Computed example of a mutant assay.
Amino acid sequence: MAAPSEGLQAALAEWLTHLRGLRDASDHTLTAYQRDVAGFLGFLQHHHGESLGTARIASLGPSEMRAWMAHERTRGLSARSLARALSSVKSFIRWLADRDGFDASHILSARSPKYQRKLPRPLSESAAAEMIDQVDTQAMEPWIAARDAAVLTLLYGCGLRISEALGLTGEAHPLPEVLRIRGKGDKERLVPVVPAAREAVAEYVRLCPYPLEPGAPLFYGARGKALNPRMISKAMERARMSLGLPSTATPHAMRHSFATHLLAAGGDLRAIQELLGHASLGTTQIYTAVDAARLMEIYDRSHPRA
């Protein structure tokens, strides 16, 4: 099969560099984008039986987009994965059209396959509290138990991602009333710190055998290096087994629980979007579905069908 033209290969590399610089995309994200677009270009070359250049991309039509999507489905790609791949391809072609000055509307109009989006599985308020209490007692070293509880309190009390919590450095202590968090895409947001989180971190710092220094990690592993997120996952695995909680009780579920419980208490969706650091309101709106699903479960238990 013919290889992509040098111009097209160069365009793909330039686009990835553009994403890395403009959006501060992670290596994992860039690898996924590269794989999606390369797979699309590979299909087109096999489909047409010839090497494609950037000019040929400009002449693609809806039929070729449909043929590619049908091919991906027949080889077993799920609707969700295909939707992600189509998004990558559209992003590349949109960028190429802007760079080379052609109309890509006939390509960008390709419809994404519909799929049932998985809802986050938050813990109940009592289960979230029990999880924090459990990790606070199960480690043999008191400072490690306090550390694990402090991290989970930040996830549940402030809605931080695990990477954001473990990315805090020594100068973050004592925690201020509002944390400045740098999240995905290198975007900054302000997150109010609940008293429970401030107290939990203070207790960990009091017991921690390692010195807290500016620029050094706030949370240490047992050997004095930056805490690996896997250790928090392991602590939660032990805790959920003791508490009889499902496997969905993960560190990220604590963040889901923060958003779901805040929404159930009457929180504004736009404000929750800001607190979570979501780029799109649509990402945050999934929690309205979570809350509705939870209400239906309560209704079904209270009013069982005959």
Score class of each variant (00 low, 15 high):
Gly42Gln: 15
Ile181Ser: 03
Val193Lys: 00
Ala38Arg: 14
Asp300Met: 03
Arg305Met: 07
Pro122Trp: 02
Glu164Val: 03
Ile57Thr: 10
Ala306Lys: 10
Leu207Trp: 07
Glu199Asp: 15
Ala10Trp: 10
Leu281Thr: 04
Leu86Met: 10
Pro176Trp: 13
Leu96Asn: 04
Glu188Leu: 04
Ser88Ala: 15
Arg255Gln: 02
Cys208Ile: 09
Arg111His: 10
Gln138Arg: 07
Arg305Tyr: 09
Arg20Trp: 06
His106Leu: 11
Thr169Trp: 00
Leu22Lys: 07
His71Lys: 12
His303Trp: 04
Tyr33Asp: 09
Gly221Leu: 05
Ser88Gln: 07
Cys158Arg: 01
Val205Met: 09
Ile286Val: 15
Ala145Arg: 03
Leu41Ser: 09
Ala306Ser: 13
His18Tyr: 15
Ala38Phe: 03
Tyr204Ala: 07
Arg147Ser: 00
Gly277Asp: 09
Arg206Thr: 12
His47Leu: 11
Pro195Leu: 14
Ile93Phe: 10
Ala239Thr: 08
Pro195Asn: 12
Thr137His: 13
Arg189His: 06
Ala202Asp: 15
Thr250Gln: 10
Met236Gly: 01
His256Leu: 07
Leu276Gly: 09
Gly277Ser: 08
Ala226Phe: 02
Glu171Val: 04
Ser126Gly: 02
Pro176Val: 13
Tyr287Gly: 11
His106Asn: 11
Gly183Tyr: 12
Pro142Cys: 03
Asp98Lys: 13
Met131Cys: 01
Leu123Asn: 08
Tyr299Pro: 02
Phe102Cys: 03
Arg99Leu: 12
Pro120Leu: 05
Leu19Lys: 06
Arg161Phe: 04
Ala292Tyr: 04
